[in-house]
Amino acid sequence: MAKEVKPTRKNLMAIEDRIELSERGHDTLEKKRDGLIMEFMDILDQAQEVRENVDDQYQRAQRAINMARAMEGDVAVRGAASALKEHPEITSESKNIMGVVVPQIESSKVQKDLDERGYGVLGTSARIDEAAEAYEDLLETIILAAEVETAMKKMLEEIEKTKRRVNALEFKLLPDLYSSQEYIEQKLEEQEREEIFRMKKIKAKKEEEEDADHLTTDEEEETEEPLTADD
């Protein structure tokens, strides 16, 4: 890159400006990356907890439905499940964590009261209630997991992007700029030295010429003087 830059004072100033801007950008991005990592670690802890909850609640829900199928029969459980057509409502909003837009998922009508599950209370049992409740809990946790995992994924992408930018600045752009700056400085110094040398040369030449002129004048004067005396 350095060789592509014209070694002019104007370019040097422009590069120095870019260096200053890039260094500031580098510091800011580093801070952003560190901040994102800290936020990510918090979300990671939350995600691990939510994942464990999903596992536990899935096991609990599976067990509850197995027991309900065993004690009440598959037909009764399927029947109770089909007595409700209404689906839980899920709305998604977004929130901003250090410039990263992550979803905020709100759910409603997941947890239901005994008389909202569709099946009649009089002809069913606590086994079916237990299975329904376990699946409602599981669904709530899955929704939370979706929110946390998406936030984690987006944070991770942003961290990667910021890291790439920091690295690009640190290992590519800034070194190139420094190298261009050094190149231009060297070139300018060289040009300066050349200029000085040239000036010196010119000066010396001028002095030589002047000296030569003086000599010629003196000689001429010396040649003319005896004639005038003899005359």
């Binding site: 007595a83 409700l84 209404e86 909202e116 099946y119 009649g120 209370v121 009089l122 002809g123």
Partner: peptide
Amino acid sequence: ESLLVPLENAVDRAYY
């Protein structure tokens, strides 16, 4: 309500 609860309860109640 579009829920089966009242119908199911009515059936059980009628039976009893």
